[in-house]
Computed example of a mutant assay.
Amino acid sequence: MEVLNDIMNGTLQLEEGQVLEKLTNLIKFDQLSSQIVQDLVQSRWYMAGALVAVVILCFIYILLLRWVVGPVVWLSIAGFLALLGFAMYLCYKNFEYYKANPVGLYQTTNLKGYAQSIFAKYETWLVLLIALAIIFVILLLVVIFLRSRITIAIALIREGSKAVTAIKTTVLFPIFPWILQCGVIAYGVLVLMFLMSIGDSAFRVVNFKNDTTCDCAGIYTEEGQECNPAKFVSSCRDTASVGGALPCSLASCHFTGWSTCWVSFG
């Protein structure tokens, strides 16, 4: 907002293209922040209900550990390994699918759209598959070679569950440190967003080769070419529309990240 005030007051001298770029960045940031707040507001009751459900499930789990701690622990370990195996299977199937059917990028300011763009790449599923496979192998080796230690841990868990059921407030106490940790994580994410935003926005033309009716007056002619969103919107038109008044239907100037900004001190 300080940049916008400086532009309006005339204290910041910029060219027309730079003004449009900064205004575009402000609008995109406002849309993204509004979408984040909207998503949180819409899902607040779901998150509260999930929190209550987790507390109840944890208490039931602790009660079960008091009487059937052995089977519960071993079934939990087996279930977690089975879950990892199923997750690896899903990652492999998605990796095969998106590698055989690549999906083009598209412009969006919605968090769901950003997530869809990330998970529509086969590289993402390959990385997840490798990470899950490493975790699965490590946990499997730990279970195999530390069976006796797990048996000792089961006995300790049995005694600990007796103490927890005797003092039931210990189940509720971790909620407060959890809230504090969430606040610290949120602050860290905010700082990370500011650090990642250091530099210039990088935009590239996407889906241009698939949009045969898009004409940019010779300014943008190739897929993946660097572009300016405001300039793209003003110069690129759909020639199939009446009078070429509509923007391109498929091609867009897509945000691809932030260019590195090196700052020297001295």
Rank of each mutant, 00 (worst) to 15 (best):
L250F: 13
R147E: 02
S201P: 09
L64G: 09
Y122E: 12
V41P: 13
S264W: 10
P102R: 02
Y46L: 11
I179D: 02
A131Y: 02
V19C: 03
Y106T: 14
V73P: 05
A120I: 08
L132Q: 04
V143N: 03
D39S: 00
L250T: 04
V206P: 06
L111I: 07
G257P: 05
I185A: 07
A50D: 01
Y106F: 15
W45T: 03
S34G: 06
S117K: 13
T239Y: 02
S197Y: 11
M47I: 09
Q107H: 14
I157N: 04
L14F: 07
A131S: 01
T256V: 13
K112F: 03
L23I: 03
N101A: 04
L132T: 06
I60H: 12
C91F: 01
L111Q: 11
A155H: 09
S43V: 02
A87R: 10
G266I: 04
V103N: 10
A153C: 06
L146I: 11
V205H: 01
P102E: 01
T256H: 10
A120K: 06
T109L: 10
R149V: 08
V127E: 06
C253D: 03
Y97L: 13
L64F: 08
I135N: 00
K22E: 14
L180R: 00
F145T: 02
L40H: 12
F194G: 12
A78C: 05
L84C: 03
E21A: 11
S259M: 13
L105N: 14
L250N: 03
K99R: 14
W262E: 15
G199D: 01
V189W: 11
A48M: 07
A230G: 01
V72S: 10
E15F: 14
Y97N: 13
G183L: 10
V191F: 05
I175R: 05
D200G: 05
S148A: 08
A202Q: 14
M8Q: 15
S235K: 15
A131D: 02
L4G: 07
L146R: 07
V52N: 03
A245R: 08
C182A: 13
Y92D: 09
I219G: 15
L64M: 09
S249F: 01
V205R: 00
E222D: 14
K231C: 15
Y92K: 10
S197L: 11
S197W: 12
W262M: 14
E226T: 04
R204W: 07
A163T: 10
Q181M: 15
H254P: 09
V41F: 13
V41H: 13
L139Q: 06
L51P: 06
S161W: 00
A166C: 07
G218S: 10
V54P: 12
E123A: 09
I157G: 04
